[in-house]
Amino acid sequence: MSASDLWLRDVFTKYGLIVMIVLLVSFWINYKWSKVRRNIYKAYLLGFETECAELADSYKRRLFRSLDQIVSHDETLRSMGQIRVLEIGVKTGENIQYYPDGTQLILVDWNRKLGNYLISSERSWQFSHVDFERHIIGDGSSLKKIPTGCVDAVVTTRSLCCTTSVTDTLKEIYRVLAPGGKYFFMEHIPETEGTFTRWIQTVLTRTNLWPLLYGDCRLDCNPNKDIEKAGFQKVMWKTVVLQGYVSHPIHLFLSRRHLIGTAIR
């Protein structure tokens, strides 16, 4: 046995138990931290995001009103008076109530249990007026399973901030939309430059603290210019500020400004 082998044996004999304990503790902390993160994000979705959707109800009703006027490019759906909608970042399904009866809905979300939630939960009756065509696991930056030009409308609400690439997601949205199809968006945007709130949003995002706890959400994300440059024929938008009571006012304080509008393919 060489000198180096003897040295390794001696080190392992003296410190092996300590090393094993350190490794086990590290694995345990990592497991617990992942579980804590999942619980925090779940509480965030079922709590604040649900309350936020209620505050945005009047804006969404006006935004989605034109869905009833869309005529599907798909001959079969058109003959039945239905349309195909793709939603990115479905969360707890708060937007589904605004979709016309018979809508063929494609879901894009990281939550693998989303389908079960929408079909089998105690809230499933609220989603019974639409048909769930398919569920794609992802964030919308890659929609290879969706053929080009097969979707009549795409929806994102408070979702672009969590995508791997806003630019890639918008390219995919543009691609899958049928000619004349509509993109509906309501995305939170940061406060104006130079304000204290903007500084907090930047710090929480760049330190990765906020994204780590809240589903990769970037508080400093502003997709305005990206939407304008995505190639749409016509883009219409305005900014609105959500106000009202929520159980976690700090969340609303940091994401109250929104960009809301439509873009036509």
Rank of each mutant, 00 (worst) to 15 (best):
Leu213Ile: 00
Met186Asp: 09
Thr92Arg: 15
Thr164Val: 10
Val85Leu: 09
Asp109Val: 15
Arg198His: 09
Asn208Val: 14
Leu160Trp: 04
Ala178Val: 09
Asp57Ser: 15
Ile18Phe: 02
Gln69Cys: 10
Ile250Pro: 00
Glu122Val: 04
Tyr59Cys: 11
Leu213Ser: 01
His248Gln: 14
Gly194Ser: 05
Leu55Asn: 04
Asn222Ser: 12
Val22Lys: 08
Val176Cys: 05
His248Arg: 13
Trp237Ser: 14
Asp139Lys: 05
Thr197Ile: 13
Trp110Glu: 06
Lys42Ser: 13
His135Glu: 07
Leu170Arg: 09
Arg112Val: 06
Tyr41Cys: 09
Arg134Lys: 15
Arg112Asn: 08
Ser121Asp: 13
His129Gly: 04
Ser159Arg: 03
Lys171Cys: 03
Phe48Glu: 04
Ser121Val: 05
Glu172Asn: 12
Ser159Val: 11
Leu219Asn: 05
Val241Phe: 07
Arg84Gln: 09
Val246Asp: 01
Ile146Phe: 00
Val203Gln: 07
Ala263Asn: 09
Gln97Gly: 15
Ser121Gln: 14
Leu143Lys: 02
Arg84Val: 01
His258Met: 14
Glu133Gly: 01
His258Asp: 06
Ser128Arg: 13
Gly215Glu: 11
Val235Gln: 13
Ser79Asp: 07
Asp168Met: 03
Arg158Ser: 15
Leu55Asp: 05
Ile88Pro: 06
Leu6Ala: 14
Val130Lys: 10
Trp28Ile: 10
Trp210Pro: 00
His258Gly: 11
Phe64Pro: 11
Ile119Gln: 10
Ser142Thr: 03
Arg198Asp: 02
